[in-house]
């Protein structure tokens, strides 16, 4: 393993500034960690003087993104997840990155692609359809999270899936909210 020296620390600092990252976490995203990260999101609201209705939307998006990682991400010591908060030119960014088993890659990708083809009315329609479909189900996963994120962000959802080994992919997800 390559050693971590002061120069790489300098480079990391430069990249964080260049990429407009306001906060970056790498580690397991457990239920307890979710609560801490949500508090950090709330602290950023004051720092950036974000108005009340947008605060609610961003908080909502952050919860759904973090719950997606804690519920669906594959955790393990060498395959930690990441969570970031960014802000650039009037846009607030919530980003997550986590390992997924590649047997879910296709369905996740097609769900996101479908969501990205829909306008607000289309999203509302599938949200209601999903809600009705789910009436008989006891699963905690309502399948509503990504639709909800798209509705509240009012922007297309950015994602990328990169293979990391034979059975697993890395899922990078970014939600942009115009301030």
């Amino acid at each position: 393993m390559e050693e971590f020296d002061n120069h790489s620390l300098f480079n990391l600092h430069r990249s964080i500034i260049k990429e407009h990252m306001e906060f970056l976490y790498k580690g397991n995203i457990t239920v307890d960690v979710v609560n801490i990260l949500l508090q950090i999101v709330k602290n950023k609201f004051n720092e950036f003087k974000i108005d009340y209705s947008l605060q609610k939307r961003i908080y909502n998006i952050a919860v759904e993104c973090l719950e997606n990682v804690s519920d669906h991400g594959v955790s393990g010591s060498d395959i930690d997840s990441i969570f970031l908060i960014g802000k650039v030119d009037g846009v607030f960014i919530i980003g997550t990155g986590n390992i997924i088993n590649n047997n879910v890659t296709n369905s996740l990708g097609s769900s996101l692609n479908k969501i990205n083809t829909l306008d607000r009315e289309g999203l509302k329609l599938i949200y209601k359809e999903k809600m009705t479909e789910q009436l008989g189900s006891d699963s905690n996963d309502a399948g509503l999270g990504l639709i909800d994120i798209a509705l509240k962000a009012n922007n297309k959802l950015d994602y990328q899936i990169n293979p990391v080994n034979a059975g697993q992919d890395f899922f990078s997800f970014q939600v942009k909210i115009n301030l």
């Binding site: 908080y59 909502n60 759904e64 719950e67 309502a142 999270g145």
Partner: peptide, 16 residues
């Protein structure tokens, strides 16, 4: 004040 998407599904069940 806030409810996540999973809660919104079960609130719907409760309203039904």
């Amino acid at each position: 004040d806030y409810l996540n998407s999973s809660s919104s599904k079960f609130i719907f069940k409760l309203i039904k």
